[in-house]
């Protein structure tokens, strides 16, 4: 289940940031992905909410700035 979730997160991020899926690794962050900024960040948040049918808490949104945090947050909602 964990792997499936990770695949879906990576797929969503890859589509929003327009980068290959294998660029979304455990170190992925706005530092490693140039298109991860501004509106794209909010688009990613919305896309993840839609993909997993969840609603992030307001204070969570600004923490979603690394794949590591995103993975833990999404998994906490869906697992």
């Amino acid at each position: 289940m964990g792997n499936q979730i990770q695949k879906r997160i990576k797929g969503t991020m890859s589509a929003i940031f327009n980068v290959p899926v294998d660029e979304i690794d455990s170190t992925a962050s706005p530092r490693t992905i140039k298109s991860w900024k501004g509106k794209n960040h909010l688009k990613m948040v919305e896309a993840l909410e839609s993909e997993f049918d969840i609603k992030f808490e307001e204070c969570e949104i600004e923490t979603l700035v690394s794949y590591k945090v995103i993975k833990a947050t999404v998994m906490a909602y869906v697992s």
Binding site: E60, E62, T63, V65, K68, A72
Partner: peptide, 14 residues
């Protein structure tokens, strides 16, 4: 707890 933890998650996850 979420508001408190958000600070740590944002700055200290590594």
């Amino acid at each position: 707890t979420e508001q408190l933890f958000s600070q740590a998650a944002g700055y200290l996850s590594n």
